[in-house]
Amino acid sequence: MQRSEEAPQTAIRMSGMTFAAVDRYQDLVYRTALTVTGNVPDAEDVMQEVFFRYFRSHPVFESETHERAWLIRVTVNTGRNLLRSAWRRKRVDFDPELLVQSEEQSRDSRVLRAVMALPEKYRIAIYLYYYEEYSIREIAELTEQSESAVSQQLSRGRRKLRSKLGGAKA
């Protein structure tokens, strides 16, 4: 087979788009994946799969909002597929204590643990609503559910979270 000197330059050009997306959205995808799967190894697998899919499909987006929504939807679906997979590795639950370095972070880890202890559907609704600040209608579109289902998940998730955190007010 003949070798070409043009390949590395072209590869850099072609990978550039995905690299920029990785740099910009790595935390978004990782947080979403962690919220869906509830554990670090699965979240890492999901993140890798999402960016490989991004790389393979070279999607064209109308705006940054559209791109974020695409990434969240793909991450949620990939994570759910992984959770359903029979070949999934033994689950190692997320340990927020690994993040703890100060008193403030200790409080954050308590909140994270409480969120991660919720059932998967409540976690996703809580994360997208409170952290990503999506509306109920947008969450319904992203997670392919009805608005009433999302609304119910939010109110139940909030109630459970409050009881776990000892009555924090929303």
Partner: peptide, 24 residues
């Protein structure tokens, strides 16, 4: 409030740099 607590908690979560580099 709950919103700020959740925001602060998630702000402390970052994608592992090692994973990002390996993926690239």
């Amino acid at each position: 409030n709950l919103k700020h607590e959740i925001k602060n908690a998630y702000d402390s979560v970052h994608a592992p740099q090692e994973l990002t580099e390996r993926m690239k």
